[in-house]
Design a protein around this nucleic acid. Structure first.
Lengths: 200, 200
DNA sequence: GTGTTGACACTTCTCAAGGAAGTGTCCAAT
DNA sequence: ATTGGACACTTCCTTGAGAAGTGTCAACAC
């Protein structure tokens, strides 16, 4: 079986996405030209179309790859502090905030499609990212901190994702400070029992 | 002193804003015409300009009035459950979510200015709304639940505002369910001490 | 078989020009 | 005070012609 066929295909795919990344980060998604993309990698337009059936598919793949990279970074941030929940959350959130703040692709993606396209992106795409990030974080906490109450865990994970997203949109003083606050909040939720009483 | 002068002025102001509300909710802010607005209320264009120096000022006042109405509703939701923090938060959040979900003005405001205008609105305006809502909620909790730890209070209020905004953007299954979850999370944060330990 | 080239229909962007309509201001009239 | 008209200026809308881009096809080259 021609195994190398697939590796060649995925290599081509990667190089196409690399070129697309650069172009999109530089001039925005709607300025991206399929012809330029093909010639930048050194293939014909048809080869490109055999890899990605449409320009939209390129954007989709680009988004997915970037999202996965982001999740890998988060995962690493979490794994770097397996003994300290607060530090783990703080690292993961801080990584996400600094990445979202600098990543040119994200901004270019958002400013790419005019008006209604932006809304659809902000809803459809970020909804998928939301679900993925939530699922990943939940799996991590379940595995790394199994003694945490499931209800508290679910609420904490949801809060972590939503608060992080909120700090991306409404940036606080600094990513580090935001990460600290989010981590503090998340830990308090995670370690809560739901049976607390108001102090005297 | 001509007290009634001012009342007439504010009455005119209210009627102008009412007419502007209808027009903006119907066709969007950029389709709003100053001439239509004036004639809809039955005054000349100049009278309108003496009340609002520019069209932008109309939008500003409209936004402010709507925000204040929203905050009043939130305040009432909180005050309706002075003995139950969870119920108070749930009522306030639920009110906000249903209001934001149905309010045609908010959507019209967001879809009004094309492209970059949307971003400026989403940042500048919602930042002001954020601060106001946060300040109000903090003042309420400080007064109604004085025994709550200040650090926990601040984190809880911040989480309440941010999570509510998050649920406006990324709507959950239903406003009621979202409100329940937000209230649960907020209460857990509010009643936390920051010294919790992970269960054995 | 896979990839390239050129051609194709169709849609979308890009200007340019002109006219229409809207904003904000001023002033005489009431 | 409020009005109506007139004003300069800007923005919007339409029209049309041309360029450029997308997605598909078939003939061709390796």
């Amino acid at each position: 079986m021609p195994r190398f066929r697939e590796t060649v295909r995925t290599l081509l795919r990667e190089r196409l996405l690399d070129a697309a990344y650069e172009a999109v980060a530089d001039r925005g998604f709607d300025k991206l030209r399929m012809a330029h993309l093909a010639s930048a990698v050194g293939v014909s337009r048809q080869t490109l179309y055999s890899e990605f059936p449409s320009k939209e598919a390129v954007g989709e793949a680009l988004f997915q790859r970037e999202l996965e990279r982001c999740l890998v970074g988060i995962q690493q941030g979490l794994d770097a502090h397996r003994d300290d929940l607060r530090a783990a959350v703080e690292a993961a959130v801080g990584f996400t905030l600094t990445l979202a703040g600098r990543n040119p692709l994200i901004k270019a993606m958002l400013t790419s499609t005019g008006e209604d396209g932006l809304l659809s992106y902000l809803t459809t795409r970020s909804a998928a990212a939301f679900d993925l990030a939530t699922a990943m974080a939940d799996a991590y906490v379940t595995e790394a901190w199994p003694t945490i109450d499931p209800v508290a865990r679910e609420l904490a994970v949801d809060a972590a994702v939503r608060l992080t997203a909120s700090h991306i949109v409404q940036a606080g003083p600094s990513p580090e400070e935001s990460a600290r606050r989010v981590a503090d909040t998340v830990v308090r939720v995670a370690l809560s029992t739901g049976r607390e009483r108001i102090p005297r």
